[in-house]
Simulated scan of single mutants.
Amino acid sequence: MSHGSTAHNRRGGISRAQFLAAAGAVGAAVPLGAAGGTAAAAPPPRRGVRYRSVCYTLVPGETPGTAWSARRMRSDLRAIARDLHANSVKVTGDGVDRLTATASEAVERGLHVWLEPTLSDRPQQETLDHLAETGRHAERLRRQGADVHLSVGCEFWLLVPGIVPGETVLDRIKNLQDGTVDFVDMQRKLDAFTARAAAVGRSVFRGPLGYAAAQDDRVDWNLFDVVGIDYYSAFPRRESHVRELRKHLRWGKPLAITEFGTCAYEGAPQTGGMGWDVVDHTKQPPEIVGNPVRSERTQAAYVSELLDVFEEMGLYAAMAFEFLTADAPHRADSPRHDLDLASYAIVKPIKDEPADPASDWHWEPKEAFHALARRYARYDRDRRT
């Protein structure tokens, strides 16, 4: 995931490249696990992405005005289905009630659902219990005829305590940055927890099972039906993306891009999953650091290029990260406070009263929204003709 979704209240952190360089030094082979489950995912089409999706993240919200609400959720899902022309939505985040209500509403609107419960900084057993309860709801939807996949989680090394030393996400990032991590031990613990999560998922859900990994994480994909990768690479040539992605096809399983996207400023794609790190949240109100130049065109061009690559490869699913970041409002009147500039969202929240933290707000589509909508709609037309 974009690290900003959990570590947005602190400047600094470890880059994905730093983490992966250290983790890659471990050199241990990926262990082999139990094969598959009871319901293998269907193979991808020869051309085009089967599930054209967007990540819809559920969080408590920093203020009452940005907290999850059923009214806003229903309106957002209507826009995802009708205006974005998505045929799928990734419902992710925490809170079983929020997750299940949103998944049920998405099914009612005819959307495929990739349901991914995530908890941050909670004990491992609580994370597994949260997964089990959400997974039972996914199974109920599946039995009623819904098209639903269950993901057991996202980048466990970052979110789940006990794998990397540190009580919080920020502590774990600092330890990774400082190099005070035994990467052999980390991989062993990551493997063990991933296997436990897969077993819990299998115990409650009979449909296709997946997991969202960082693109160079070592995962035993024999545990899952779908390979899921959070993809934030930037290359000057499309062929480099194809080469990077092909290695995830060696498992002979459908490949889902469980996150892809960038922020709305020049140069953001080159920052990968760290594009959010141009905000100083120690200031009140938070401020943009440096002089990044807002560019919705940059964001739109990046997601367009990647989606074209995914379609050419015939990948199973592509989930743009993300639909909305309610706590990162757009401020056209004050570029220093334009937090949406550092957001991966494809719509921008705009407050009625920009300086009032409790102000009501609405969202407007960014150029990336329109770029995805054109491609999602075009693909539907192509399949019908």
Rank of each mutant, 00 (worst) to 15 (best):
residue 216 D to K: 09
residue 305 E to S: 12
residue 262 T to Q: 01
residue 216 D to N: 14
residue 218 R to F: 07
residue 296 E to N: 07
residue 266 E to N: 10
residue 299 Q to C: 05
residue 303 V to N: 07
residue 212 A to G: 09
residue 229 I to W: 10
residue 207 G to I: 10
residue 300 A to F: 11
residue 244 E to Y: 02
residue 303 V to M: 07
residue 285 P to C: 03
residue 216 D to Q: 14
residue 202 R to M: 08
residue 287 E to V: 15
residue 223 L to R: 02
residue 276 W to F: 15
residue 237 R to Q: 13
residue 266 E to I: 04
residue 226 V to Y: 00
residue 244 E to D: 15
residue 222 N to R: 01
residue 267 G to V: 02
residue 221 W to G: 10
residue 211 Y to D: 05
residue 262 T to A: 08
residue 240 S to E: 15
residue 226 V to L: 01
residue 293 V to I: 15
residue 220 D to S: 06
residue 205 F to M: 01
residue 275 G to A: 12
residue 279 V to R: 03
residue 203 S to M: 04
residue 206 R to H: 07
residue 252 G to D: 10
residue 272 G to S: 13
residue 255 L to S: 07
residue 207 G to F: 05
residue 211 Y to I: 01
residue 269 P to D: 07
residue 305 E to Q: 13
residue 277 D to I: 00
residue 240 S to V: 11
residue 232 Y to S: 08
residue 245 L to F: 10
residue 291 N to G: 14
residue 295 S to M: 08
residue 266 E to W: 06
residue 234 A to H: 15
residue 238 R to Y: 12
residue 249 L to A: 02
residue 303 V to I: 15
residue 247 K to T: 12
residue 203 S to A: 02
residue 214 A to E: 13
residue 282 T to W: 11
residue 304 S to R: 14
residue 210 G to H: 00
residue 279 V to I: 15
residue 208 P to N: 00
residue 299 Q to V: 11
residue 248 H to D: 00
residue 302 Y to D: 04
residue 249 L to G: 12
residue 230 D to K: 00
residue 286 P to S: 04
